[in-house]
């Protein structure tokens, strides 16, 4: 049981990072982005391409760090994949969502638009990398044996720490930096932000770039933990939304907690249910939240975070 909780924390940390970025984007662009999971996949595949195709020919030293399954190549690929995924998201915004904003489309049109983007991205991933599974490495790493029969792979400890570091970094960025404050102001009251001299179109670009970079990180960490598949992000969309809504949609700090809760409950549920029911567990939590506390744990009537 404790082992399942530990597994849940690892899964939860990835879900948290995905949900935090999903809800950050929602808070500013004001629609549910169904392409978020597929941005995670883009990040994972770009890193795969860099590590296993580009860097493999470059003879980069330190192929693995100690007990971890990856090394310097992955550490170099991570920021590049974040950047590439951010570029993809910003370009998508330019091509798809910005024209829709200019014509003042209804929110539902943006959601359907994001669904189309999700399908398009996944189709491209299929065309470029094929439908089969990929792994960053074939190397097997022994798990650490901890008390209470808990086994944790060193990679998983890295995943947890990386997720926490990313969310902490985002928190500092939003609270301390000028752009971060302007993002919060835009989420809180877009008209007043414009009146104050904030170019909200610039804030859209920042939002997509940051949201996509964090999604890419979540995708890469998921790929390190399990495998890389074209539908890896799409399959996570339901738990991500469950986590975001549980935490209060639009509130990144709530999504952090929401992701942990969903991750732990999903893993612990496998003690009683077949693992194939894991998505259903997220769905049940989502329905319960909507019935009992639609604002989520940390949501409030007012906008902003």
């Amino acid at each position: 049981m404790i082992a399942l909780v530990v597994d849940g924390i690892i899964l939860g940390s990835i879900l948290s990072l995905g949900a935090v970025s999903l809800t950050l984007v929602y808070g500013i662009v004001r629609f549910a982005n169904f392409a978020h999971g597929d941005l995670m996949a883009v990040g994972a595949y770009v890193a795969f391409f860099l590590v296993n195709t580009v860097f493999a020919t470059l003879d980069i030293p330190i192929a693995t760090f100690g007990p971890l399954s990856f090394g310097l190549p992955m550490l170099l690929a991570l920021p590049l994949a974040m950047l590439m995924t951010a570029v993809v998201a910003v370009v998508v915004d330019r091509l798809v969502f910005r024209p829709m904003r200019a014509r003042r489309y209804a929110t539902v049109m943006f959601v359907i638009g994001s669904l189309a983007v999700a399908f398009a991205i996944r189709a491209l991933v299929f065309i470029i990398w094929g439908p089969e599974f990929h792994f960053y490495t074939q190397a097997l790493r022994p798990a650490l044996k901890l008390p209470f029969d808990v086994r944790v792979k060193p990679d998983q400890i890295f995943i947890l720490l990386a997720c926490l570091a990313m969310v902490a970094g985002l928190y500092l960025f939003l609270q301390r930096s000028k752009i971060g404050q302007a993002l919060r102001a835009t989420a809180d009251n877009p008209d007043l932000a414009r009146i104050s001299g904030i170019n909200t179109e610039h804030m859209m670009i920042w939002t997509w770039a940051i949201g996509a970079a964090l999604a890419a990180t979540a995708g890469i960490l998921l790929g390190i933990d399990s495998q890389i598949r074209p539908e890896m992000g799409w399959n996570l969309l339901l738990p991500l939304f469950a986590a975001a809504i549980l935490g209060g949609i639009g509130n990144p700090y709530g999504a952090l907690v929401g992701g942990m809760v969903i991750g732990i409950v999903q893993q612990v549920s496998t003690a009683f249910l077949l693992p194939t029911y894991k998505p259903a567990v997220a769905f049940v939590i989502l329905i319960l939240v909507l019935l009992i506390r639609p604002r989520g744990l940390f949501g409030s009537e007012q906008r902003g975070f």
Partner: peptide
């Protein structure tokens, strides 16, 4: 020119100081 709308004329989730900082966003 500066404008104070009738409703929703503050950033409620920001602190007083942050509201002022947003007012000076263009001229830190």
């Amino acid at each position: 020119l500066s404008y104070v709308p009738q409703a929703d004329n503050t950033f409620l989730s920001l602190t007083v100081q942050e509201n002022l900082a947003m007012g000076a966003f263009l001229r830190p």
